[in-house]
C-alpha cells in the first residue's frame, strides 16, 4: 500500500559513525551475502567474471576527499544505504503498491510479488538506495534486515542487521529512533548525528555521525629541557636525571 502510515510505532534505522568508518567494505559484502539468500529474489550479478560486471548491492561505501579551509586534506569513507525515510517519496510514487513503509517499525520495503519493475521509486529516491535487479526484474533495497531482526531462528544477539553485526569497527548502530532513550537516539544526540539532504523533505530515519575534528595541533605544552646540556655537558644531564630517582 502506497500511502504512507501517518506515524509508525517504532522508527528503526541505523546510525553510521563517519569518525570510525575505515571504508573496509565489510558491510557491503555482509549485506550482499545475507540478502543473496534472504528476503525476496537473490542479488544477481551480470557478467561476474567478464569485462563489465554489474551486480545488485543494497549498501555501497564511497570514499571522499575533503579539504578543510586550512590544514591537510582528509579522506572520509561514506556508507550509503536506504535511510528508511518518514516521508518516503519512493513509496508514494509506486503505482502498484509494492513499495510500502511498515506501520509497526517504519521499515521501507518492496513487496516483490507486486512490483512491476517500472523503476519510478528508484527515480524518486534522492539517495540512490534502490537498485533494480536485472535478473529478477524487481526493485531491491535495504530491508533493514527485516528477516533477521525479528527472526526466532536466530540467537537473540544476532537479531540485528547483517551489516551492523559484521562491521569490524562498530561504526554501524541499529535501533529505534522513536525511543529517545535508545542507544541510537542518545548516540546521535551526543555526537551531533545528522540526516542527509533534509531540505528534500524526505525526513530520513538514519543518522550520520560527523567525523571529529582532525589535525588539531596538540596544545600540550612543549617539553621543557631538564637543563642546558650544552653548558653542563652529558655528565651534568646524567646527574640531574639520575638524581631524580
Amino acid at each position: 500500500m502506497t500511502t504512507l502510515p501517518a506515524t509508525t510505532v517504532k522508527k528503526l534505522g541505523l546510525v553510521i559513525d563517519l569518525d570510525t568508518c575505515v571504508g573496509c567494505q565489510a558491510c557491503v559484502t555482509a549485506c550482499k551475502g545475507w540478502n543473496d539468500q534472504g528476503y525476496g529474489a537473490l542479488l544477481s550479478d551480470q557478467d561476474p567474471y567478464g569485462a563489465n560486471p554489474s551486480g545488485t548491492f543494497l549498501n555501497r561505501v564511497h570514499s571522499y576527499a575533503v579539504q578543510p579551509p586550512e590544514g591537510a586534506a582528509q579522506i572520509i569513507n561514506f556508507p550509503r544505504s536506504c535511510l528508511h525515510c518518514e516521508d518516503a517519496p519512493c513509496v508514494t510514487v509506486c503505482p502498484t503498491g509494492a513499495s510500502y513503509k511498515r506501520a509497526e517499525d517504519g521499515i521501507v520495503l518492496v513487496n516483490e510479488d507486486a512490483c512491476m519493475g517500472c523503476g519510478l521509486c528508484a527515480w524518486a529516491c534522492p539517495y540512490g538506495a534502490r537498485e533494480m535487479d536485472a535478473d529478477a526484474g524487481v526493485m531491491k533495497k535495504c530491508t533493514l534486515c527485516v528477516d533477521r531482526i525479528y527472526n526466532d531462528n536466530l540467537p537473540e544477539a544476532d537479531r540485528e542487521p547483517a551489516c551492523v553485526r559484521g562491521c569490524p569497527t562498530g561504526a554501524r548502530h541499529f535501533g529505534d529512533f522513536a525511543d529517545p532513550g535508545s542507544a541510537v537516539s542518545t548516540l546521535s544526540a551526543a555526537r551531533g548525528g545528522y540526516a542527509l539532504m533534509p531540505d528534500l523533505g524526505t525526513r530520513p530515519t538514519n543518522r550520520y555521525l560527523p567525523p571529529r575534528k582532525k589535525d588539531m595541533r596538540q596544545d600540550a605544552s612543549l617539553l621543557a629541557p631538564l637543563l642546558d646540556i650544552q653548558a653542563t655537558g652529558f655528565a651534568g644531564w646524567l646527574d640531574r636525571l639520575l638524581g631524580k630517582i
Binding site: 560486471p53 564511497h62 571522499y64 576527499a65 572520509i76 533494480m132 560527523p210
Partner: peptide
Amino acid sequence: TATGLDRIGDVTVFEQAHTAGNYLLREM
C-alpha cells in the same frame, strides 16, 4: 550537502564506491 561533509570543507570523490557498473549509473 548530499554527504553533509560540507561542514568540514570542500568535498570531492576520492575513490568510487565500486569500479564495476550498476543500476544507478546506468539509469540515473
